[in-house]
Write a protein that binds this DNA or RNA. Structure first.
Lengths: 353, 353
DNA sequence: CTGTTAGCGCTTTCAT
DNA sequence: ATGAAAGCGCTAACAG
């Protein structure tokens, strides 16, 4: 009971429900004839309130169509229960699947996910990072654009926890998740080796891209102690089907390889298209392996054997590492989680007989 | 826990900068030797503060690494500047591109996007809607799971503005954006007609799906006054490549159609695969048209002619309609924005000679 | 078990 | 041009 029964007019109006806007905690308290503390308790500490009171409060909430004001609760409580997902392009299948994993993990832990699409623009990425600090996001999962992590560190100094995706960070700085691309490259070439191929061409992107360099390294490792195997590399600027087709032009004639490993699926499909267009059969004349397994692989001219990355898991794991850091606070120790890619065998390079 | 207003010593300590946590407005004010109001003004009403004062305040902010607390500002200001994006699955290319459009629009207007992936689960969708109400999101852009819009309406009654994607809503309820699937179906079949085909098979999903029914209707319209044309329909349960291949089995033999319209690209590629596997040439023996143009179309066995949907624009427009509603308030009138799909001509059904 | 009350960090009249 | 003070809606001591 908030007011004296015989009080003057002013007081009589003072804790009336507001005529406008949604119901507040105080409105519910008034309607149920209890204090705001009690209403707050039925929401947050159900055990602390008697059954009869709880019931009255619930009914009042129902009647007033009360919706708790999360923002106000946060401000008071000091914690935020929301995390940012910063990535270069959700429309890209790789990041889309990652986002799905992150969204699921966030949902499981009742966290809110703020989508920050940096559109491959460093300035925009920076802007989002600042925004997340202003929102007091509990943390951010970032698939960074460049190698420059200085900005990221600044974020953490501002109280926003960090987890980095798709880039093996030194564990001292923050948690990270990534895929073992060296292993992926090795898997692909080992498969071709098992198929009996001794002349393999690697159609790759620029080696300045970490993923490309790693996949090459894996390929190299696979043939390291095999002097009987020839491994050549053709590098292209853009990793798309057109480049794959163009690269294949240089790989025909008498000295053509018997197998091609394209370091992404677009490239590999381009290669396949050019091969078929040139009258060669896949896999009978030339085997092809790709990398990625996102959407297009099974739909190519020949269903593509390719290296699959657990990208959904990448997103999920990143969020989970971040939540651990949020929960554990100082006790948390940063970890670098590395996922193993897997070979998906389809027709372009079938299983060894 | 607060300070005693009368106690001198206590008071002397009372507005010292906190040793812990990030700097607050009050800390900046103290450091700059001004009041909190002035600091707030340099942030929000730069014109109201003198140049010299402004400079001192800026320096103090810099020195303390001050980051405004958006949440607190919102609570006080009463507005939220964040919107929810509720969709069935970001990993799906259709929604991924939509999300990108929504993210870009939100960014342009300095709004925060909350990603809500309902995972094709009505209960989860419902949970997100409730969450958005608790966050006091200014609005929500929803690509709804089912036809049941009752829940959606409840959201609006709670003050969350609404825009619906991918479902032509009556304009009286809320804004909506969608693609004209009837037109899309017509485009596809008209193209086949122009190519001279007179026996066309439609490989379609269940007609209970609005999109499928609309695309069929479009196809029907295209042949309405053409008694010389035969249009048959084969319906499949799941709209994937396997179903496309299976459906093609029933379309061979002497009475086989000369053209096939698959109502999504997976289906169309499945059809193409089966056709090629059966020794028929595409497009020479049979022309194929798909629907969607998301990722896989150009990579198929034969680059696929297909109906493209402006799905990025869908997401962008939905957010923009919603923001208009937020800005305009009562003056806003709901609109149903319908986008026109376009035919993308590739090899599986080339341009008429 | 329930109520009183002091803020969370900020914006915004209303004085000066 | 600047400052004092009153909250926004809620949580959490603390007191009864």
């Amino acid at each position: 009971m908030g007011r004296a029964p015989g009080a003057e007019t002013d007081d009589a109006f003072s804790d009336r429900p507001r005529s406008t806007g949604p119901a507040r905690l105080a409105d519910v308290a008034l309607a149920a004839g209890v204090s705001v503390a009690t209403v707050s308790n039925v929401l947050n500490w159900p055990g602390k309130v008697g059954a009869a009171t709880t019931e009255r409060v619930r009914q009042a909430m129902e009647a007033l169509d009360y919706v708790p004001h999360e923002g106000a609760a946060r401000l008071r409580r000091g914690s935020s229960r929301s995390i940012g997902l910063v990535l270069p392009d959700v429309a890209n299948a790789f990041y889309a699947h990652m986002a799905r994993g992150a969204a699921d993990a966030a949902f499981d832990h009742r966290y809110t996910l703020i989508l920050c699409d940096s559109a491959d623009d460093a300035e925009r990425e920076e802007g989002y990072l600042a925004m997340l600090a202003e929102q007091r996001a509990a943390g951010a999962v970032v698939a960074p654009l460049g190698a420059d992590t200085a900005r990221l560190l600044r974020l953490r100094r501002r109280g926003v926890r960090l987890a980095v995706v798709d880039r093996a960070e030194p564990t001292t700085q923050s948690c990270s998740v990534s895929v073992d691309d060296v292993r992926g490259g090795r898997l692909a070439v080992e498969h071709l080796l098992a198929l009996g191929h001794r002349d393999i061409a690697l159609v790759n992107g620029a080696l300045s891209i970490r993923q490309c360099a790693d996949r090459y390294e894996g390929a190299r490792q696979a043939v390291a102690h095999r002097p009987d195997v020839r491994l050549r590399q053709v590098n292209v600027d853009t990793m798309d089907a057109a480049s794959g087709r163009a690269a294949t032009a240089g790989l025909s004639g008498a000295a053509a390889p018997t197998a091609v490993f394209g370091t992404n699926d677009q490239l590999a499909i381009g290669v396949t298209q050019a091969l078929l267009g040139g009258g060669r059969r896949v896999p009978d004349d030339v085997a092809v392996v790709g990398y990625g397994d996102l959407e297009i692989a099974p739909y190519g001219p020949v269903p593509l054997t390719t290296v699959a990355q657990p990208v959904y898991e990448l997103g999920r794991a990143a969020v989970e590492l971040m939540l651990d850091e949020i929960d554990q606070g100082d006790r948390h120790v940063h970890r670098a989680k590395v996922f193993a890619p897997e070979l998906v065998v389809r027709q372009s390079a079938p299983a060894p007989r």
